[in-house]
């Protein structure tokens, strides 16, 4: 079963933050290269690059999720993290009171395995929540 964010939610919750952070990174990077960096430039550059990494590389905010008998696959920015159920030793879910699920697969790392899933923004929220909870281990 495939669960997908609405286009508007996808754009404003996933794409826009990455674009804004990317823009800030570019501005800060330019300041560094042109010798205009001040005491905060490097910190802001690091943090904005982290947001880009989180969204684009680590896919921590997936746009769509596929859950079937063989695997779970999380997709964002045209890339997919796919995990066969047989390869998953741990799937932990932290349910936040705001309705978002923080999912960690096999301990989760910097580039893979940590996912923020705002289930209340998915059209099939109940089915998605149940599917994730059913596979918790």
């Amino acid at each position: 079963m495939k669960y997908t964010l609405t286009p508007q939610t996808r754009f404003f919750s996933v794409t826009i933050p990455a674009m804004v952070a990317g823009g800030v990174s570019a501005v800060m990077g330019y300041q560094v290269v042109s010798g205009q960096a001040d005491q905060f430039t490097w910190t802001i550059l690091f943090l904005s690059l982290w947001v880009v990494l989180d969204h684009v590389l680590a896919l921590a905010h997936p746009e769509s999720i596929v859950i079937d008998e063989t695997q779970i696959a999380l997709t964002s920015f045209g890339r997919t993290h796919a995990y066969a159920w047989t390869d998953i030793q741990k799937l932990r879910i932290k349910r936040l009171a705001s309705g978002t699920l923080y999912v960690r697969i096999n301990d989760g790392g910097l580039l893979k395995g940590r996912y923020w899933i705002p289930v209340h923004k998915f059209p099939d929220r109940l089915a998605l929540t149940q599917a994730l909870v059913d596979h918790q281990r």
């Binding site: 826009i16 933050p17 904005s48 947001v51 989180d54 936040l96």
Partner: peptide, 11 residues
């Protein structure tokens, strides 16, 4: 846009 991202990192 960025404030919630930083709060998310903190969380």
């Amino acid at each position: 846009v960025l404030i919630p991202k930083m709060a998310g990192l903190l969380m």
